[in-house]
Design a protein around this nucleic acid. Structure first.
Lengths: 196, 196
DNA sequence: TCTTTTATGAAACAAACATTCCAATTATAT
DNA sequence: ATATAATTGGAATGTTTGTTTCATAAAAGA
C-alpha cells in the first residue's frame, strides 16, 4: 500500500559517507548532505534520521566493511603469521589508493568525536578492543604453531600490532609510498618472528 | 601612551588551547571561547585575530613545546638509542597523564582539518617531515656508533619510529596503561637493536 | 592634567545551522 | 479505480554561528 523510497539507499549512504569522510562530522552540514545526495531534507530525516543518526549508521557500516577486509585477508593465508601480513598489506593498499589523504573513517571519528560523544566513545572503544582481540587470536595461533616467538604474550603483541596499524593509518594521511609502508610492516612483523 | 591589555596572554591561550583540545576546531564556537577565557569578543578579535588565527597560534605553540620535549629528552641520554627511548618514554607519560583521552593536539588537528585547510595541511606535512628527519638523525648516529643495526636505512627506520609514535598517540586515547605502552615501545625499539 | 592610543563592552549583523511542519504527491494492494 | 500509507517538496522554525561596529573606558607619556 505505501509509497516506496525513490532512491537507492546504498548510493545515498555512500555519498553521505564520502562527504563526512572529507569534511568531518562537524564540518558537514545538512545542507551539504542535501546537495550531495540530491535528496530533500525531509526525505533524509524520514529515511535516515538526524545528522548524528546518519553518521552513526555510516560508522557502523564502515566498521562492518572493514571487518570483512580483515577476515577476507585470512582466507588467502596459509598460516596465522601470513594472515597478519595480508591484513596489513590490505590496509597499505587502502592507504595508497587514498590519494586525497582522507585517512581512516573510524580513526577520524575517534579523534573528532570520542571526547564529546559518550556513545561513540563507548562504541569505538569496544571496536578497538575487538580488533586487538582479533590480533591476539592470530598471534596465539602463530605461537602455538611456533611461527611466532613467545617472548611476549599474545595479548601484548596484539597491542603492538594494533598500534602499528593505527600509526600507519595516521601517518599514511601524508605518506602514501607503498614501499615505505611495506617496510614499516616488515619491521613491525619482524618483532613477532620466531627466534632463529 | 596606549592602554595595555588587561589579561595574561599565556593564561588565555592555555584556556583556549584546552577548549579546542577538548572539543575540536569545528566543535568550538567563539561563544565558548568567550566563556572560557572571560574575555570579551572584541578583545579576543583585537588581541588574537579570528577563530582560525587563534587556532593556528595554538597549533604552532603546541608544536614548539613538543619540540622541546623531544630535545630535552636527548640531553639526559648518553647515546642516540637511549635518546630515542627517552623520547618515547616522555610521550608515554603524556599519554598516561591524559586521563580524558584528548590525544595529541596536532594529530587531532591533522585528522580534523588537514583535508579542508591547505595551509594547515602544508604546515603539518612539513612538521611530519621534520619529526621524521629528527628520528633519522638519531638513527644515523646510532648506526655510526654500531648501537643500531644497518639492515635498513636510517630514513626507513625513521618512518617506522614516527609511525609507532603516531600509533601510540592514537591508540593511547583509549589505552593509557603505562606497562602496555612501555612494552610497545620496547618492541618498536627492538627492531633497531644491533645484531647480536 | 591633558592628550593620545589602545582595549573593552554591548549590541548588531547577516548567514548558516539542525530540525520540524504540512500540504502535495505517488506508489502499492485491494 | 480507489483507498491507504508513506515519501516528498518547500517553506518556516528558532538557534547559533563568526565577525563587525562603535561608543566608552582606561592606561601611559607629555
Amino acid at each position: 500500500m505505501p509509497r516506496t523510497e525513490d532512491f537507492d539507499r546504498e548510493i545515498v549512504l555512500a555519498k553521505a559517507r564520502d562527504l563526512f569522510w572529507q569534511k568531518g562530522y562537524n564540518g558537514t552540514s545538512m545542507r551539504n548532505l542535501v546537495e550531495v545526495t540530491g535528496l530533500n531534507r525531509s526525505s533524509i530525516y524520514n529515511s535516515f534520521g538526524n545528522k548524528k543518526a546518519i553518521y552513526k549508521t555510516l560508522l557502523i557500516q564502515y566498521q562492518e566493511e572493514n571487518e570483512k577486509i580483515y577476515t577476507n585477508a585470512l582466507v588467502r593465508a596459509s598460516n596465522p603469521l601470513e594472515g597478519i601480513r595480508f591484513v596489513f598489506e590490505n590496509f597499505i593498499e587502502e592507504i595508497v589508493k587514498d590519494s586525497q589523504g582522507r585517512g581512516c573513517f573510524s580513526i577520524n571519528c575517534k579523534v573528532e568525536l570520542s571526547r564529546e560523544d559518550e556513545s561513540i566513545r563507548d562504541y569505538l572503544e569496544k571496536m578497538q578492543e575487538h580488533r586487538i582481540e582479533f590480533f591476539k587470536g592470530l598471534v596465539q595461533e602463530g605461537q602455538d604453531a611456533h611461527l611466532i616467538n613467545a617472548k611476549q604474550s599474545a595479548s601484548q603483541y596484539a597491542y603492538f600490532l594494533f598500534c602499528t596499524f593505527q600509526g600507519m593509518r595516521t601517518t599514511g594521511m601524508f605518506l602514501r609510498n607503498r614501499d615505505i609502508l611495506l617496510q614499516i610492516v616488515h619491521n613491525g612483523l619482524g618483532v613477532l618472528r620466531r627466534d632463529s
